[in-house]
Every structure is written in C-alpha cells, then in structure tokens.
Simulated scan of single mutants.
Amino acid sequence: MGVGELVLANLAVAAATVVQLSAGLGLSLVGVPMLVAVDPRLVPVPFALSALLLMLGQWRVDARAVPPGLLLPSIAGVAVGTAAGMVLAVLQPELATRRGYGLIVLLAVALAVAVPRLRPTTPMLAGAGLVSGVMGGISGVHGPLMGLVVSHLSAQAVRGFLGLFWLLAYLALLAMAIPAGRLGWGEVWLALGLLPGIALGAALSGPARRWLHGPRLRWAILGISAAGGIALVAAG
C-alpha cells in the first residue's frame, strides 16, 4: 500500500472514529466501504484489530452508566454468530449477502421508529447479537442492530454498552480469524498503519459527542442505521 493510499485509509478511519465516539456506533458502517475502495486487504481483520483500543476507551468512559444484565445475552449471540459467519465466509459465502443484511437492518429501523420504546429483553439482545456476529464474521460490518435495541437508553449508557459490545465482538472476530487463517503478521502491519486515523478521529470527536444526547442521539442512531442498511442493499 502506497503513501497516498495510506493517507486516504487513515482519513476514512478518522471520519468513522468521529461517528463511532459520538453516536456509539458506525465505525464499520462508515469505515468499511471506504477502506474497501482504498485496499480490500484492510477489512475485516486489520480494521477490527486497529479498533480494539478505540472500543476499550469508549467503554471505559461511560461504563458506570450501563444497566446490568445487558451484556451476557448479547455477547453469547455475537460469539455464536461470528463463528457461523466465519464458516459461511470460508465455505459458502453465497448463502449470506449484504443485501439480505441490509434489508434486516432497514426492517429493524422501521420497528424502532414504530415502537420508540423498545425494551432490550434477553431474546432481543441475543438475536441482535447473533445476526450482528454473522454479518461481522463475513464482512466485518456487524451492523447497527444492537444500537437500535438500546437506543432509548441514556447517551452514556448507549455509548458504554456499545463500546464493550463492539470490543468483545471484535475480539471474537479476531479469535475466529486465527484458525481460519485470516490473521497473520501481514494483517497486524496493516492494522498498525490505521492507528493514526483512530487517534485523529478520537481527537476530533469531542464536540460531536457533547452535542449528541437524548433524542438527538436516538435519531443519529436511526439515521446511521438506515444509511448503513441502504448501503448494504445497494452493495448486494
């Protein structure tokens, strides 16, 4: 990857980081399409590897605001889903398409608009985690379903919960990538090259984070989710 491509990749990661830290989600939805255009080798594994510190920081800042009981069913679902997604990506990639996932996301957005006070029940959290894991295992785009499930919570609770959820989701993805032969020193070097973009985006995210709260945060999640669903449908 040349210097120009590296600069473009880091600018893409910086933009995705600003969205992620302000809305609590959107890193993959914003970053993955742009990184694929620069160099497809950057996703999903190098991008996920570079994002670990970002997600750890997002969680740590707002961890105390997260209600108990949300994490276990979500992570159980995403772990099973990631394993299934990795298997599908290696053996039968045609069984799952981005268009199908996009339609699922758009249906979830419609449900969240129609029922603005969705309760994050155990089956809903596990199901959203499962679908997110399958999507992430195949493409690196875990999707915004989990954000929609918790979008009615406070801004601090949303960001804290999603930070830890994405951190564990990415760790599951990377753990599954090793036996699948998709994580080696080449991917590590590519991930290191994206860290300046993560740092730049984190430095620029403060104003957006302070502005997005309450209804603004919920509508930001709905807008990012809808845009991601449309992009996935268009990508097929």
Rank of each mutant, 00 (worst) to 15 (best):
G2M: 08
G4A: 14
E5A: 15
L6R: 13
V7Q: 03
L8K: 08
N10I: 08
N10T: 10
L11I: 11
L11K: 12
V13D: 07
A14S: 13
A14V: 03
A15P: 11
A15S: 11
V19T: 12
V19R: 09
L25N: 04
L25T: 03
S28A: 15
L29T: 12
V30S: 05
L35G: 04
V38T: 05
V38H: 08
L42Q: 04
P44K: 06
P46S: 10
P46M: 08
A48M: 12
L49K: 09
L53E: 03
L56A: 15
W59I: 10
V61Y: 11
D62L: 05
A65W: 08
P68M: 01
L70I: 09
S74H: 02
I75R: 00
I75P: 05
A76D: 09
V78D: 03
A79R: 02
A79S: 15
A79L: 15
T82D: 09
A84G: 13
G85F: 10
V90D: 14
P93T: 09
L95E: 08
R98T: 13
R99P: 01
G102I: 14
V109D: 00
L111P: 00
A112S: 14
V113K: 02
V115E: 09
V115S: 02
L118H: 03
T122D: 00
T122V: 14
T122C: 01
P123E: 04
P123H: 02
M124R: 15
M124E: 00
L125S: 09
G127Y: 03
A128H: 06
L130E: 00
G133W: 03
G136S: 12
G143K: 06
L145A: 12
G147N: 06
V150K: 03
S154D: 10
A155F: 06
V158D: 10
G160F: 11
G160N: 08
L162N: 09
W166V: 15
L167Y: 04
Y170N: 14
A175H: 01
A175E: 08
R182C: 04
L183E: 07
G186N: 09
W189L: 14
L194D: 01
G201A: 10
R209N: 07
R210K: 12
W211I: 02
G214E: 11
P215L: 04
A220E: 02
I221K: 04
I221M: 12
G228W: 07
G229M: 11
A234V: 15
